[in-house]
């Protein structure tokens, strides 16, 4: 007989105490089932990552691309180039990193705020609620390249709807501003990314709220809590586990975003909106310097691992007591 996972059934938990069940059986079947997945993981994830680390120590430019074994060893040169902030390449990378961080935090905060706002507003039934909920899912369901290409049309200086409204209809500016180059490009990137990101926050928060028992709201209402009081005392504390995952996922997605800037700006993004994925892409596939590109990717990975690890550590520690008394 095979050992199955039965942790959620009390009877089985008791049975697990018997000597026969306590000893883990060496079963081959789970490994056989996993074999294709493990094989592929090795081939498409582990091997490329090792190769990527290897490349980051090579002087791999377009001359050696077709024959990487001939590429000269670079030692730590690629890493030195990436982090030397008083040289152009290092300064550009640092700038791109700062832009990406600011962009990510802004998008994260606005998307989460809008998601919570809309989830609270649609929590109680009203006429048209189903329609509104479905509508809010559309930006998430649409292919990103299709919606962002529409945004790039809307943000065109001479033919776009944005300047038509701001300049022709509201007369907020005398000159038509550019939205896809210069300082405004950062703002454009944030708005477009929020448009397609906040529905996911809405989705997760709505699902989280649906699992909150209504008795808790009734009890809070009996205690005299109004809408804001219920939000503060019931909704937000009970959403804490959802938020813990949601914030991390939103952070990683936004930080690594490539499709939005690439579709909005083309192969080379304006300096003000030079996100890190675009920056590495450009270094590798426009300037054909794979060595430094790989070194930057490795540094990016280390940063993301550090942030994720630190986040999980902080969140789990501060989250413990709250989950235990909930």
């Amino acid at each position: 007989m095979l050992e199955t996972v039965e942790a959620d059934r009390p009877a089985e938990v008791a049975a697990a105490g018997s000597p026969e069940a306590r000893r883990p059986r060496r079963e081959l079947l789970p490994y056989a089932l996993l074999a294709p997945a493990i094989g592929l993981e090795l081939l498409i994830h582990i091997l490329p990552m090792l190769v990527g680390v290897g490349i980051s120590f090579l002087k791999l430019t377009q001359f050696y691309l077709r024959n990487w074994k001939a590429a000269p060893f670079a030692g730590g040169d690629n890493y030195r180039i990436a982090v030397e902030i008083d040289k152009p390449a290092g300064r550009a990378l640092l700038h791109s990193f700062e832009v990406t961080l600011a962009f990510t935090l802004l998008v994260l905060a606005i998307s989460w705020g809008l998601g919570l706002f809309a989830a609270v507003l649609t929590q109680r039934a009203f006429t048209g609620r189903g329609l509104v909920r479905t509508l809010f899912l559309v930006p998430y369901a649409m292919p990103v390249f299709a919606s962002v290409i529409t945004w790039s049309f809307m943000l065109q200086r001479d033919t776009g709807v944005v300047n038509h409204v701001l300049v022709d209809q509201l007369h907020l500016a005398s000159q038509r501003p550019f939205w896809l180059i210069g300082d405004n490009s950062f703002l454009s990137l944030v708005v477009v990314t929020v448009w397609r990101t906040w529905p996911f926050a809405f989705l997760c928060l709505t699902a989280g709220m649906q699992s909150i028992p209504t008795e808790l709201y009734e009890a809070a209402a009996l205690d005299g809590a109004g809408i804001t009081g219920q939000l503060r005392r019931v909704t937000l504390p009970l959403l804490a586990p959802v938020n813990r995952v949601l914030v991390l996922v939103l952070f990683l997605w936004t930080f690594n975003d490539f499709t939005t800037p690439y579709t909005l700006f083309g192969k080379s993004a304006p300096r003000q909106a030079d996100l890190i994925s675009m920056h590495i892409y450009q270094n590798s596939f426009v300037n054909w310097n794979f060595g430094t590109g790989s070194a930057m990717s490795v540094l990016l990975l280390l940063f993301l691992l550090a942030v994720t690890g630190l986040y999980l550590l902080v969140v789990n520690r501060s989250g413990e007591p709250r989950t235990s008394d909930a």
Binding site: L47, P48, G52, L252, S277, L304
Partner: peptide, 30 residues
């Protein structure tokens, strides 16, 4: 099933999901 390496497998699957695509793109291209 509970088996040795189950946890490790889950961690690898979960973490590769959050790595940036560019990390795999460069080496796969080469």
């Amino acid at each position: 099933y509970r088996f040795r390496g189950r946890q490790a497998f889950s961690v690898v699957v979960l973490s590769t999901q959050m790595f940036p695509g560019i990390l795999f793109l460069l080496p796969l291209f080469v």
